[in-house]
């Protein structure tokens, strides 16, 4: 009865092993367990980050490893901040980020609100709505290029069906005005279900009796929506925006599949520009500086946002 699990394990430990761990403190054993994880994190996360910061102060080019590396101070940063191409790509990212979040929150919340109503088959509908999210971005990008095809694409056909315009009179991916919107549409199509799921979790977390209490307290449906539903779903909604925001800030795969940054550079977002600088122009030092700027931007925005999120949760 007095024998514990620890005792049993201790008794079964082979003498050879036991001799080795004998005399180790609890703290030392804890380090033994945590050590491998810390090592992995350092080698694949922290070290590359530090190395990138280091490279960002140099004129290093990865395709010319034998050339002498010169430290050029902050010159890379100066050039980036003065580079109009970079600013255009940042604008493209901001446009994409704002509108995808706007539509995904709006449609995602509305869908969640509708699905949350008790009706027959809402589980089936949830599954159907969630499907796009389960596809690979490469596949989605690929088949949307077909859907956007002016002559045979379904998208143009549907638009002309409702507006009566000539299907080949506009090209979603080929037009300078429409291309930014075409990727907003695809990303919204693919990721709205994600926002919906999180909002749905939020809505389901509100117990019925709260609405019953509000009903008794003579709050109208509208007042219930604004004083109960919205405040109680808000933390969930903000979390969804955080996830989508970080994801879309570094959006790469869909855009490469759909427009490759074109036409011209209208859809060339920061991440695509970065890839071009780093692995087509091989300006390693320069692109390292750009990566650091992007990292700080995302990190800064996310930190401010998480603070706000915590404030909402504490209320």
């Amino acid at each position: 009865m007095s024998e514990t699990t620890v005792d049993r394990v201790a008794r079964k430990t082979p003498a050879r092993v036991a001799r080795k761990v004998k005399g180790l403190s609890d703290r030392a054993i804890a380090w033994l367990f945590v050590g491998p994880t810390i090592f992995l994190l350092l080698t694949i996360n922290i070290f590359p980050l530090i190395w990138t910061i280091n490279l960002s102060f140099t004129n290093f080019k990865a395709n010319r490893p034998n050339r002498a590396v010169e430290y050029i101070g902050l010159r890379n940063y100066e050039r980036i901040l003065g580079d109009s191409d970079i600013w255009l790509s940042m604008q493209a990212t901001a446009h994409f980020l704002f509108w995808t979040l706007f539509f995904q929150v709006l449609i995602g919340f509305t869908l969640a609100w509708l699905i949350n109503k008790k009706f027959k088959g809402n589980d089936l509908w949830t599954t159907i709505i969630v499907l796009p999210m389960m596809l690979s971005p490469a596949v989605v990008g690929n088949f949307w290029t077909f859907l956007y095809q002016p002559q045979i694409g379904l998208f143009n056909y549907v638009i002309t069906f409702f507006t009566g315009a000539d299907p080949s009179s506009f090209q979603m991916l080929g037009s300078v005005d429409l291309a930014p919107w075409s990727i907003v549409i695809v990303d919204t199509w693919m990721w709205t279900p994600f926002v919906m799921l999180i909002c749905l979790a939020g809505l389901r977390s509100i117990p019925d009796y709260i609405y019953e209490a509000a009903e008794i307290d003579r709050a109208s449906k509208l007042r219930q929506f604004f004083t109960i539903t919205i405040p109680m779903v808000l933390p969930f909604l903000m979390l969804a925006v955080l996830f989508r925001g970080i994801e879309n800030f570094k959006m790469f795969d869909l855009v490469v599949q759909l427009t490759g940054g074109g036409p011209g550079s209208t859809t060339e977002m920061a991440s695509i520009n970065l890839k071009r600088e780093a692995f087509e122009k091989w300006r390693t030092g320069y692109s390292s500086a750009f990566a650091i700027i992007l990292f700080v931007t995302v990190f800064g925005l996310a930190s401010i946002y998480v603070k706000a999120l915590n404030k909402v949760k504490e209320r």
Partner: peptide, 16 residues
């Protein structure tokens, strides 16, 4: 419930 003008205390606390 609003038209009936009743006040109710629930068994579970049902606070906001």
């Amino acid at each position: 419930p609003a038209q009936r003008d009743v006040a109710m205390v629930f068994q579970q606390y049902s606070l906001y």
